[in-house]
Every structure is written in C-alpha cells, then in structure tokens.
Measured scan of single mutants.
Amino acid sequence: MQIFVKTLTGKTITLEVEPSDTIENVKAKIQDKEGIPPDQQRLIFAGKQLEDGRTLSDYNIQKESTLHLVLR
C-alpha cells in the first residue's frame, strides 16, 4: 500500500509499505529515499509519536495515510 510522509519543509514523500511493516522499517525506507538517518527521524500520526517496534497496523495506519516527519 502507499502512504505519504510530509516533511517540515512541506515536501511529501510517497512510500510503498505493508501494514505489517514496523515503524523502524518505514524509517529505513525514508533513509533510502531521503538520506536521513533513522535516529534523527520522528514520525507523527494523528498527533502521536510512533514507536520503532510497533507496526503500521498497530496504529491503524491505512493506505494513503499521511505521516508527519520531524527531525531531531
């Protein structure tokens, strides 16, 4: 499924993921596309910060959901 990741600069990254993918996994995909190390990434969905060990389905993230990427 496709999800979108919006950065603070207003750029939107499109990722191909599975509901069973972990947040860690998603961060690795963002690193592949954008070169941002996962340890600098914070992903936010519905106002919650997403934890590395959880999966997209844990957070009920469905196709075409938009996550927000904050760098630390």
Rank of each mutant, 00 (worst) to 15 (best):
E24S: 08
K11T: 07
H68V: 08
L67D: 01
K29F: 05
I30N: 01
E18Y: 11
K11N: 06
G35H: 05
K29H: 11
T9F: 08
Q40C: 02
E16H: 15
Q62W: 07
G35C: 03
K33F: 12
A28I: 11
A46Y: 08
L50A: 02
V26A: 04
H68C: 03
T9L: 06
Q62M: 06
E34R: 11
I36W: 11
L50C: 02
D39E: 15
N60E: 06
G10L: 14
H68W: 11
F45I: 11
E34P: 02
N25A: 10
R72D: 15
H68R: 04
T22D: 09
I13H: 10
F4D: 02
D58T: 11
L69Q: 03
V17N: 02
E51P: 04
S65K: 04
T14V: 12
I23K: 01
K6Y: 11
E18M: 14
D39R: 09
G10F: 06
L71G: 05
I23A: 05
P37M: 11
K6Q: 14
Q31C: 02
I30T: 02
T66L: 15
V17F: 08
P38R: 14
E34N: 06
D39N: 09
I23S: 04
F4H: 08
V26I: 14
E64Y: 10
D52Y: 07
Q2C: 02
T66D: 10
E64N: 10
D52T: 04
Q49D: 11
N25P: 01
H68Y: 04
M1Y: 11
T66R: 11
Q49Y: 11
K29S: 10
I44P: 00
T55N: 08
L43D: 00
G10M: 04
L50V: 12
Q31Y: 13
T9G: 07
K11R: 07
K6G: 11
R54C: 02
V17P: 01
E51A: 13
L50P: 01
L56N: 01
G35K: 09
F45N: 08
I3F: 01
K11Y: 12
K48H: 12
V26H: 00
T66E: 08
R42D: 08
K29R: 10
S20P: 10
K6E: 09
L15K: 00
H68T: 15
L8E: 04
E24G: 08
D32N: 08
H68S: 11
K33N: 04
T55Y: 15
V5F: 05
L67P: 01
T66H: 13
I36Q: 05
A46E: 15
L8R: 15
K29Y: 09
Y59P: 00
L56M: 07
K27S: 02
T14F: 09
A28N: 11
M1G: 06
D21G: 15
K63L: 08
I44D: 05
D52I: 06
R42Q: 11
F4I: 06
L15N: 00
G35T: 14
R54Q: 04
Q41K: 02
A28C: 02
Q49G: 10
M1F: 13
V17M: 12
T22G: 03
I30G: 01
T9N: 14
Q2W: 11
K6F: 07
Y59T: 02
A46K: 09
K48R: 14
Q31M: 06
E24N: 11
T7Y: 08
K27E: 01
G35Y: 04
H68F: 14
Q49P: 06
G35V: 03
K6S: 06
I44G: 13
L69E: 01
V17H: 08
A46C: 02
Q40E: 11
T55V: 09
Q31L: 05
F4K: 08
Q40D: 10
A46Q: 15
A28Q: 13
L8N: 15
D58I: 13
T12E: 07
P37L: 11
D21E: 11
A28E: 11
D21I: 09
I3W: 00
T22R: 12
D32R: 11
K11V: 12
I13R: 03
E18F: 14
K27C: 02
R54T: 09
K48G: 06
E18H: 11
G35F: 08
E16M: 12
S20F: 13
S57D: 14
A46T: 05
D21F: 15
I30V: 12
T14A: 14
V70T: 06
S20Y: 14
L8F: 14
G53Y: 14
R72L: 09
E18D: 06
K48P: 01
S20A: 15
S65V: 07
K29I: 09
I3N: 00
E34C: 02
E51T: 13
E18P: 05
D32G: 14
Y59N: 03
E16N: 11
M1C: 02
V5T: 02
I44L: 12
M1E: 03
K33T: 13
R42F: 12
T22L: 04
T9H: 09
R72W: 09
D58F: 13
I44E: 05
K29V: 03
K33W: 06
L15V: 03
Q41A: 09
N25D: 13
Q41N: 03
Q49C: 03
T66S: 06
R42K: 13
